[in-house]
Design a protein around this nucleic acid. Structure first.
Lengths: 336, 336
DNA sequence: GTGAAAGCGCTAACAA
DNA sequence: TTGTTAGCGCTTTCAC
């Protein structure tokens, strides 16, 4: 029935000490006798004392709060990134609060103002897509780390998944399973994520003296429909294909669909890989889909770590690319 | 280059007035001359003054901040709910911050403590699934609204989608398109969402003197795989079926898959409906999928409204069920 | 080891 | 209309 509105003064009074002593006792300072400490803690307990962080923040000029401003409409990456950030921050006793700009500049300004006036200690900005985004500059007066989408300003701190490496890994894996006639169906060509992954694929093939089936990357859109369309066209013109690297799980689902309709065995005749390792899509795939996990939690964790480092004074500018992980499943198994 | 660390005192000094007057001017109080107001605003502008909300909060004993504690792992409902809440709150100049407990009791406690010590004015609790959840009680000392999943305590305030009505609407729609041999394939039987939707379906059929094909609801799990399995079994045993109501879009996708494999025309022979209206799944469905949208943004908006009402003193206890919307697409079209 | 006093940035009476 | 004075709840010197 307590409304947790008791203050340090109340605690001090109940413990029969001054507020100064109570404060020290509660904060675990050394210069307090064991007896006093116990009395104060008991009093705090009795009164259901919840320290007022606002008052503390204003006194020490730090809030112990990180902001996470996201532009992600679906929460597909921002939630995992938030979790990772919370993990890293939780260890340092900080809290992370998320707000969503919906990719809208007005809302972004609104939230920045709200966060600034609440004196957060640092900010993580999560992009709506993988493309570099305009820097927020330094006017906020607090350190900023860009996650998922890097800042265009190289002197800012950015943490993003390594799409190039992801493209490489998936290709290397396919070669290792004995495939060599590999095609690449992916999303919109002006997305840097699509470009980077494609580059990774190309470089690995090049190194083996191989080239893509169809001699080019099939750019299109990030949809199942495109995956189906492209896959149909592909098997028509290049029946020799023995592996298809899809630029996303969504596209991969379309590819799988098309191949099943054509009676093409996966992975017997053709191996298929996705990208995102997104459970809702992965779970229902037939066969289960090999995919690349961008480790968003790790991205969030590193972003928070860098941010806390910067708050403590150590700025590490530039883009940090985090390793993605290939998750191997049925769609790329070797058949005997 | 400003670090936005100027205070009201600085502004007042620069404008040549007292802090009290500066405060009044900035807050648009009436008892300030137009000239003074302008001077103060100019000074604030010059200094890039960002008011310290912490100080304000501590003085007025209100933070203008709402917490949104979610248990949703994927962000599928919590993000839309957050957006709705932000819309409602934004109108009232409040901010909403989200934190994620990942369905973990320890984290929940941790966040509750963090939010309480930051003295948020109210809290929205978003459940991880639709089942009623244990009340947090009244010990937090601030009003709480439960969203998506209601509280078990009827004296708490809850805002949830009306699953029963959704089930009714979808059934009514199918009857209107001339279907009468309707089957229902849904998820886990102990989920109240599954139960409520099924009840809605049953009641509408009853009223028409009809009953479900197979004479029962096919409960299973929330997966594409289950949708496929169940649909296969269904057309085997009950080839007369002319409509399948799926309990989720995921299940619906499985159903569509199975029907296509069987060469059953959708919607020509059988109509299919989903539930969730979840874009990632809806977008790739063939044919496009009729589904029920639970209007999460609206849920968030109402939750925030109720919360703000409660903060202002008007508590409306009980469960408020918000209307869901049927979104009609190709999978239920009438064929001639 | 403890407490009085000042101060963090702001608002709110109440005078002037 | 404006300024003075007290706080809000906490931390932090610095004497005691």
């Amino acid at each position: 029935m307590n409304t947790s509105r008791s203050s340090l003064k109340d605690v001090a009074a109940r413990a029969g000490v001054s507020t100064a002593t109570a404060s020290k006792a509660l904060n675990g300072r050394s210069d307090v006798s064991e007896a006093t400490r116990r009395k104060v803690h008991a009093a705090a307990q009795d009164l259901d004392f919840v320290p007022n962080e606002l008052a503390r923040s204003i006194a020490v000029r730090q809030t112990g709060t990180l902001g996470l401003l996201t532009h992600d409409l679906e929460g597909r990456f921002s939630l995992p990134i938030l979790m990772g950030a919370e993990d890293a921050a939780g260890a340092g006793q900080m809290s992370v609060f998320l707000c969503d700009s919906r990719g809208d500049a007005i809302r972004e300004q609104h939230h920045l103002k709200a966060l600034a006036s609440r004196r957060i200690d640092g900010l993580i900005v999560v992009g709506g897509d993988t493309d570099p985004r305009k820097s927020l500059g330094r006017n906020l007066g607090i350190p900023i780390v860009y996650a998922y989408a890097p800042s265009t300003d190289e002197s800012d701190m950015s943490v993003i998944p390594d799409n190039y490496q992801g493209g490489r890994d998936v290709t290397t894996h396919l070669l290792a399973t004995g495939r060599s006639k590999i095609a690449h169906i992916t999303g919109v060509d002006y997305y840097s994520a699509a470009q980077d992954r494609a580059q990774g694929v190309a470089d690995v093939l090049d190194a083996q003296g191989l080239s893509l089936v169809g001699s080019k990357v099939f750019f299109g859109e990030w949809s199942e429909q495109w995956g189906r369309t492209a896959a149909h066209a592909l098997v028509d013109k290049h029946p020799e294909v023995d592996a298809i690297i899809a630029g996303s799980d969504m596209i991969a689902r379309g590819v799988l669909d098309a191949l099943r309709e054509r009676g093409v065995d996966v992975p017997g005749k053709v191996a298929v890989t996705g990208y995102d390792n997104w459970q809702p899509l992965i779970a229902g795939a037939r066969p289960s889909l090999t995919s690349v996990d961008m480790n968003f939690e790790l991205v969030g964790r590193r972003a928070a770590e860098k941010l806390m480092g910067a708050i403590a004074g150590t700025v590490e500018p530039g883009i940090e690319r985090l390793r993605s992980t290939l998750v191997q499943r049925g769609s790329t198994e070797i058949k005997f």
